[in-house]
Simulated assay, not measured.
Amino acid sequence: MAKTLGAISAARDSEAAGPAAVQNPLRISTESRSHKTLYMPSRLATAETADTAIKVVAVPTPDCTLSGLPGTTLLMNESTGAVRALVNSAELTGLRTAAASALATRTLAQPDSRSLVIFGSGVQAYFHARLILELFPSLEHVDFIVRSRNERTSSLCAKLSQRFDSVTVQVREAGEVDDVLPRADIVCTCVPSTSPLFDVGMLKGTVHINAIGSYTPRMFEFPPELVSEAEAACIPQILVDSRSACLAEAGELIAARVAPERTTELGELFDPVSGRLREDEKATKAMADLRRAGKSLFKCVGIGGMDVAITRLVVDVAEKQGTGSIVAY
């Protein structure tokens, strides 16, 4: 993910001839009674390869009785124009987003963090917990904030407790947020909320937040005042996956009227070839600005290039292992 986001940010400033290395047209959609279906084409070219893909995700409407977000990615062969692979993207979307959040968390959060609070209990919540727990062995508590306990939340706790047996994993209902949020070192908001999930005053002075659930101007996961320059305790510099996408789609940033210069892309901090954290003057200053308020925030709405990268990675591994079904076409 560090290489992918580094390549995306580097390509934005490139003046190389030929097709643009990174192409992420705005998503389009169709609507039915049960779902709003999103279509997200993208292209990502790096020093190693170039791939084109389109992801299709069905977002349930309130009338839909089924859970989950069905998703499919078509990975294309750029030479022939034919479909190279058809991949279920539901798990991969959760994994690629969590990988970006984990990268941001490793970069900005306190290395001795002990408490992780996650809003949500779906695929995104699981992968965020799993990857951050692997990166931060100091964590002792994970609390999931949900609307109500159910079979899914029980399964979530069981899976994580089995993998991380030294960590206390608990599910708490929304009314209990006051009990756990004030001690949280790391917070992940993984729900498509239309109203803020917490008050700014609940947060520790050194908390790191990953906000990945909202992706439209009418969605809000955290209070806009957290990033509003009109507030004395606001976070002055915000880490984002894509500056243009977040300023166009993230309801919290739009409501707070965040200017482009107050955002830093995660990819701007990493070398696209090595994937290592850059150590030049510009990156060092950006890191200092991101940590200036004590609190830090990573806002992610999802970039098509991230889907291309993880789909290509999985397909490459599948082909080497002989996994999957080959269909005549």
Rank of each mutant, 00 (worst) to 15 (best):
Pro236Val: 01
His208Lys: 11
Tyr215Lys: 14
Glu78Met: 10
Leu108Pro: 00
Phe270Gly: 00
Ser113Gly: 05
Leu203Gln: 04
Arg33Trp: 06
Gly18Arg: 07
Pro25Leu: 01
Met40Thr: 02
Thr194Arg: 12
Glu134Ser: 15
Gly205Phe: 06
Arg312Met: 03
Leu135Ile: 02
Val87Tyr: 05
Asp165Thr: 13
Pro182Asn: 13
Ala318Thr: 05
Pro111Gly: 05
Leu44Ser: 02
Ala233Arg: 10
Leu253Arg: 04
Ala10Gln: 13
Ser42Lys: 00
Leu92Lys: 02
Val200Cys: 11
Thr93Val: 04
Ala309Gly: 10
Ser296Gly: 06
Ala233Lys: 09
Leu203His: 07
Pro60Asp: 08
Thr61Arg: 10
Arg84Val: 03
Leu226Asp: 06
Val314Ala: 02
Leu226Phe: 00
Asp51Asn: 07
Ser325Tyr: 14
Ser161Lys: 09
Leu92Asp: 05
Pro70Ile: 02
Leu266Gln: 00
Lys55Val: 08
Leu74His: 14
Pro196Glu: 14
Ser32Glu: 11
Gly68Gln: 13
Thr206Glu: 12
Leu156Lys: 04
Ser166Ala: 15
Ile310Cys: 03
Thr168Pro: 01
Val240Trp: 01
Tyr39Thr: 06
Thr37Val: 11
Ala125Ile: 04
Arg218Tyr: 15
Lys285Ala: 13
Thr168Glu: 14
Val83Asn: 05
Thr72Cys: 14
Ile238Gln: 07
Ser67Lys: 11
Thr93Glu: 05
Gln124Arg: 09
Ala233Cys: 12
Ser148Gln: 12
Leu297Trp: 00
Thr105Met: 09
Gly6Glu: 04
Ser228Ala: 14
Gln321Ile: 12
Arg114Phe: 01
Thr72Ser: 06
Gly201Arg: 06
Leu269Ile: 07
Leu156Met: 12
Glu140Asp: 08
Pro25Cys: 10
Thr216Asn: 00
Ala232Trp: 09
Pro182Gly: 10
Tyr329Asp: 07
Met40Arg: 00
Glu261Leu: 10
Asp280Trp: 09
Val171Arg: 03
Ser29Lys: 07
Pro70Thr: 01
Ala129Leu: 02
Met306Val: 10
Ala20Leu: 12
Ala47Met: 09
Thr46Asn: 04
Val308Leu: 02
Arg243Met: 05
Ser296Phe: 10
Pro223Arg: 12
Glu140Val: 07
Ala232Arg: 14
Asp13His: 15
Glu151Gly: 06
Lys320Pro: 07
